[in-house]
Amino acid sequence: MDFPVDMRILKKIVDSRMSNKKAEQVLMSSRPDALRIGDLFKVSGKDHQNIVIENSNAKLEGIGTGWKRGTIKVIGNAGSFTAQSQRGGCVHVEGSVGDFSGCGLNGGQLVIDADAGNGLGASLPGEKIGMNEGRIVVKGNAGSRLGNRMRRGLIAVYGDVGVGACCSMISGTVLLLGGQANLPGTHMRRGTIICASEPSLSADSFFEQVCKDNTYWNIFCSYMEGCNERIHQTLLSCSPRKRFVGDLKIHGMGEIFVI
């Protein structure tokens, strides 16, 4: 496969509970020369709730778009727009994903074992609200503009992130557990960013507070205990050293914890 393949049709096929044979006949797009599912995949099994995509690569785009219940496991990489507007269930990519994955996420869980591209959990073009619910865990690095306009939910990135994470964030929680983040939380209104190492912030935009025992932090840690062991260990091993509030430019009252 040299060219992008539009996988958004997957949800509709699963929802319609059509037979495997019929599913293989479904056209993947409305182009006249469109491929059928069967041209690329062999459909087998009976479980509509647990989909496994084998031998996936970065050209399969939009896997898990609008996904509501059940799991999708992607063996290999996935392309851009993975889990776009996902509403429930779990999408697990055992590799990297492309740009704008988890865009407009509205519930459920997206787990990425390797890296994610730009605009992870960001807003769809023209939408005022980005990720609105749900959880994204990236075990590798993530690109720029992560969590743009995010409103609710949780994003955790174990590795490094690109410039402008949590730009125009409305609310929600983002954990940046890797290296230094560049200009996170610009124009953030509310929300919590937790940085494992001191981020590069515009000094005029954020006010630094001394952070001594924070009740909410404890609640958050005990919540994370139920979610993911590795993150929980990181959080518990250190308590927040600093708290920044901002973005003052827009009278924001978001917070950035440095642990």
């Binding site: 992008p4 539009d6 958004r8 993947m28 797009s29 409305s30 182009r31 469109a34 851009s80 727009f81 740009d99 704008f100 730009n118 605009g119 073009p125």
Partner: peptide, 13 residues
């Protein structure tokens, strides 16, 4: 982009 059929817009992608 019309690559899936209808016109789709994404300023960056």
């Amino acid at each position: 982009s019309f690559r899936s059929g209808g016109p789709e817009h994404h300023p960056d992608y």
